[in-house]
Amino acid sequence: LVKHPLQHAWTLWYYEPDRTKTWEDNQNQVSTFNTVEDFWSLFTHIRQPSEVKIGSDYSLFKENIRPMWEDKANKNGGRWMISLNRNQRPELDRYWIDTVLCLIGEAFENFDDVCGAVVNIRPKGDKIAVWTSNSNNKDALIEIGRKLKEGLNLPERFKIHYQTHNDAMVKNSSTVKSLYEI
């Protein structure tokens, strides 16, 4: 069996809230893969987002990029935010797998700005975000955002928002400023 190589190696992380540990210690590396076959053997053997404990996250990032703002690959970047409402939970698993397939299949063509993606499973509404490395690279951001909406089959009226990590860090603001919306 010849395995199909991916352009990049990817690491899946799983975060489960545990007040006795720090946020960073709650982030666990699950596995790293660099072929399509190894990707499927991993993803078909783990619980889907809709099956994990509320308050948990999955993150899929290029190898050696940690799923946190502080990482050197993320600190000048931002993310496309896809905010789902409560009754979109049945779609969550499909949206997540479609996001992951965009990443590992390099759907964003000539832009290499993608760092990874995060799915937050939350009671008030789940969120999927795709993180990019440079929030000033408008051409790349718009292309990535468009391909993302296309890859997830999101209707035109369903808006997704790009926000820089620096803006997202501002604690006291309830709503985060978004740089772009498509």
Partner: peptide, 18 residues
């Protein structure tokens, strides 16, 4: 340079291969 790109349907088809 060249880049290894996979379409969604192609990736989904590989899901069921042994």
């Amino acid at each position: 340079g060249t880049k290894i790109v996979y379409e969604r349907t192609f990736l989904m088809n590989l899901r069921n291969s042994p």
